[in-house]
């Protein structure tokens, strides 16, 4: 896809994320909007995964560690043809398979996540299996910046480097906010790059809301032979809707009808200008 087409996809995805969050009367709005461009570039440019090859042992894997931003994942999976988008009208409704976290009951989802600090260890195990089987598939996982204090991430970071897993790539959706406030106030994890480098990872930083930059950096994975790759994607929580951007209450705030219409109008004007 051209960068323009990707940018359009991002705006369309954001509109849908808001639509289904409003329909569900629940969702992680800010984080879903911050990671939209990452998922867009992964599924449209990077991952060798589709509804047709999802049963193949050779497919690339994507494991969403920050499971709470499932609305963004579901919207992208629907767009990829894993299931009819209309299914998302049942999001979080009684007896729906579309719950508020990734579940394998939904076609296209690799692992059931939601508890934080779980994606990276599973990704590392999957990447290890690829090495054992001499398979070329790669494993991507996306973490929230707020989940970095979970110790299991650092345990897995050690294992990935120890086994030289250059087929695993972790992306941090570094929107700098978590439910209580700025990460730096809750538990300062900076400098993330130096920490992972000292653990034996190859690290790059990118504007995580710039599809062109994301495309370049994700196409460069692995950054170094024999090392796992980390992408620190600097993002804006609530990206694309000015009154939500960098605003704590939109962590899991649900827009009312008027706010929803204002947000859609802003995204429509973005679309019109691409």
């Amino acid at each position: 896809m051209t960068n323009k087409e990707l940018a359009k996809k991002s705006a369309e995805y954001r509109k849908k994320i808001l639509k289904y969050i409003v329909g569900a009367k629940a969702g992680h709005t800010g984080g879903s909007l911050s990671c939209t461009d990452i998922l867009n570039v992964l599924y449209n440019e990077i991952l060798n995964v589709s509804p047709e090859n999802f049963g193949s042992p050779d497919r690339d894997r994507y494991i969403q560690s920050k499971g709470h931003c499932v609305e963004a994942l579901f919207v992208v999976l629907a767009d990829q043809g894993f299931f009819p988008e209309g299914d998302l009208e049942t999001l979080c409704k009684y007896k729906s398979h579309y719950i508020g976290h990734p579940t394998r009951k939904v076609h296209g989802v690799e692992q059931n996540t939601g508890a934080l600090g779980h994606g990276l260890p599973i990704a590392v195990g999957t990447a290890l299996a690829a090495k054992m089987d001499k398979k070329a598939y790669r494993v991507f996982t996306m973490l929230g910046d707020g989940e970095l204090p979970e110790g299991s991430n650092w345990e897995a970071a050690l294992t990935a480097a120890h086994y030289k897993l250059d087929n695993v790539c972790a992306i941090i959706d570094n929107n700098k906010l978590q439910i209580t406030g700025p990460n730096t106030e809750v538990c300062d994890t900076d400098p993330i790059d130096a920490k992972f480098e000292s653990f034996g990872w190859a690290v790059r930083e990118v504007d995580g809301n710039d599809v062109k930059a994301l495309k370049e950096v994700l196409n460069a994975v692995p950054f170094e032979k024999g090392k796992p790759s980390l992408v620190i994607a600097h993002t804006v929580k609530g990206k694309g809707v000015s009154f939500m951007e960098n605003t704590l209450k939109w962590h899991h705030g649900v827009p009312d009808q008027q706010q929803y219409e204002t947000a859609i109008a802003e995204l429509d004007s973005v679309l019109a200008n691409i």
Partner: peptide, 23 residues
């Protein structure tokens, strides 16, 4: 054999990843 070191949470998470890939 995959040695994880003393890190039981990672032991089980990695094992889950291995199992998901047919091991």
């Amino acid at each position: 054999i995959v040695e994880i070191g003393i890190a039981e949470q990672n032991l089980v998470g990695v094992a889950a990843g291995l199992a998901s890939a047919g091991k």
